[in-house]
Amino acid sequence: METLKIIGAFITLAGSVFLLLGSIGLIRMPDVFTRIQVGTKASTLGTILSLFGIGLMFTEIAGKIFLLIIFILITNPVSSHMLARAAHYIGVKKADITVVDKLSEFREKQPENNAQKPEAE
């Protein structure tokens, strides 16, 4: 029982390190899309690991932790996809080192898609 708790605590620690890496990435990355990338990935894995560790330490709530992990795995990528889609649509400034942008080329070929293009805020 005690070893299980220590293993769980270490997993939680690993998760919190990933959360910290996500925050550092949020500060260091140059533009919106790379920030969304780093933020989503690191925070998703970090939360999943933390919750898993807590679930190991406290088996009474393991079922709800499982549901929470499934829920986060469905919702978190969806929300970051929505955010990235909106950001590209309103033309948020991309980093100077962006190599290729096939999506803008695709948009320009379909005039009805940017009939009323909103401005970036």
Binding site: M29, T98, D101, L103
Partner: peptide, 16 residues
Amino acid sequence: VAGRVVSPKLPINPGF
């Protein structure tokens, strides 16, 4: 991603 974030040169090459 963690490697990219902590490395001081920030080796990224983004694109769509």
